[in-house]
Amino acid sequence: MDKKITPLSKLFLVIIFFILYAPIFFLIFYSFNSGETMYDFEGFSLEWYRQLFHDTRLFIIVLNTIVVALLSSLFSTIIGILGALAIHMAKRRQTKNALLSFNNVLIVSPDVIIGASFLILFTMAGVKLGFYSVLLSHIAFSIPIVVLMVLPKLTEMSPSLIDAARDLGASSWDVMSKVIIPYISPGIFAGFFMALTYSLDDFAVTFFVTGNGFSTLSVEIYSLARRGISLNINALSAILFLFTFALVVIYYFITQRNKPNDMGVRKR
């Protein structure tokens, strides 16, 4: 392919990057405003951060969000691995395809539909709306993502690895814990990570299934933003941006480290 980049296309990329990042930095910039608006920068102050850190209600909401994200990604990773194994081991092609289609339903469904249908489900099942309904729905919509992250690793694994382990006398459990799981671990990490970000980012589904007493960060931001501009949100977004960036850096190094070399064997 043509490897040269003309100055014009460089400019195009610069503009795209500018447009993508400008709103975020705009938010962060105004979080240091001593005034109260997002158009008139009066002076530098950390007042909004101070308010943020003294807001216990918000602190509880942040804790809720993190707890839900960690728990839901943990459970969805476990069930997702089992699901990927079930799809991988299915003997008949039709079974495999059917399972895969069911798996993908929640990925392609719009959030509103997931939220609305889960709301009906929880109401019918008598689950009280709140922490558990949110946790269950986060687990539910994260499972297919984990499956999709783990499955390629399973298909890429040579079946002779398992045969070799069996020939050497490994039990089913040994094959699983000493051969399959280590081999697919990059997929598992990626799946867990994706589940984490999906859960942290989700608004629409949570909005439907959260009751009055329970709130996550996204829902809280929505209700604050509907009331108008409040620079508290700016300060919050600056912190969240740093957090996201840290996650990205970690993710980048994990994927770089786990990149398989040509033999498909991990380097020590």
């Binding site: 997002m38 996204s218 933003a225 996201t244 996650l247």
Partner: peptide, 21 residues
């Protein structure tokens, strides 16, 4: 990766930024 980073920022925060812009 740098293109994808903004997609990991909470969607509502991005919408909120445009309220100001």
């Amino acid at each position: 990766l740098l293109i994808i980073v903004p997609s990991w920022i909470n969607l509502l925060l991005k919408a909120y930024a445009f309220l100001g812009i």
